[in-house]
Amino acid sequence: MTTATVANQAAPDAAPRAASGRPFVEFDQVSLAYDDSGNAIEDINLTIHQGEFVAFVGPSGCGKSTFMKLCTGLHGPTEGTVRVDGQRVVGPLKITGMAFQNATLLPWRTTLDNVMLPLEIVQPHRKRLRKERQAYRDKAMRLLETVGLGAYADSYPWQLSGGMQQRASICRALIHDPELLMLDEPFGALDAFTREELWGVLSELWEANRFTVVLVTHDLREAAYLADTIYVMSARPGRILEQRHVDFARPRDLELTYTPAFTDLIHDLRGRIGAIREGRTE
C-alpha cells in the first residue's frame, strides 16, 4: 500500500478529540534503518498531543520498540525529523520516563531506592538530592502509596510479585515528573487479573497528572481500554496503517470491556492485524 492511502485514512480524523493539548511529539517522514538490511520503520508521520494517551499495536517485529527509541532520542532517524515539544530530538530526552515488559529493577536496591534511581541521574534533582533527601523520599513514598506499594518500600525486588515489581517500575518511570511516559509492553508478562488491575492503576496516575503516554502493546483490549488514539502498524518495515480514535468516556470501567461497542472495536482491530500477519494490507 502506498503512502498516499495511509494519509487518506488518517486525514479525516487527524485532529484528536480526546487530547486538547498542543502538539507534543511530531514525526515528519521518519524512517530508520539500523543497518543495510532495510528500514525498521518507514515513513512515519504523526502528531501526539500533550496529555494524549496513545497506543501502538501491530504484529511482532513491526518496529514498535524502534519507535520508542526514536521518540526518546536513544536513536536518531535515518530520514525525517522527530520533534518533541517543538524541539528537534538529537539526544536522550530527560523529560521521559520508561518502563518495559521486564521490570528491570536493581536487585541490590530496595523498592524505594529503585524508585529514586532517576533522581540520582536527572538534573536538577541530582544536585538537590543530597540536601533535600527527605523531601524526595516523601515524594517517592507518596507515589508508592498511590500504587499500593507503601508497605513494600523497604522490600527487595525479589520479594515482590511480578505485578508489584511492575508497579514499582512505573513509579520509577514517573518519579522525576516526566512529561512523556514510554511504556513498552509493560504488562505483557503479567497474568490477566493483575494486568487489568494495573490498567486501573495506570489510568488513575494518568488522570491525576495528564502526562503524555506512548504505550506499545500486543494486547488490543489494553490499547482500547487505555488509549485515546490507537495506531496500527504494519509488519516490517513498520508503517502506520491506521489511526483510530477511541471515544469511550473517562474514567473508564472494566465493565466497558464487555460492551458491544468495545468488542466491536477489538474485533475490527484484530481483523486488521490478522490481515497484516497474512501479508494482506487491505
Binding site: 527509541k69 532520542g73 521521559t96 518495559f100 521486564n102 536493581l106 541490590w108 538534573q123
Partner: peptide, 29 residues
C-alpha cells in the same frame, strides 16, 4: 548488562560513568 536497564538510565541523560557506577559495577559485584 540488560540493554533495557541501560536504556532506562540513558534516556534520563546518564553518562557512561553513571551507568557504570549505578548499575554496571554493583551488578558485577
Amino acid at each position: 548488562l540488560e540493554p533495557e536497564m541501560e536504556d532506562v538510565l540513558r534516556v534520563l541523560g546518564a553518562r557512561r560513568l553513571d551507568v557504570l557506577l549505578k548499575v554496571g559495577l554493583p551488578r558485577s559485584m
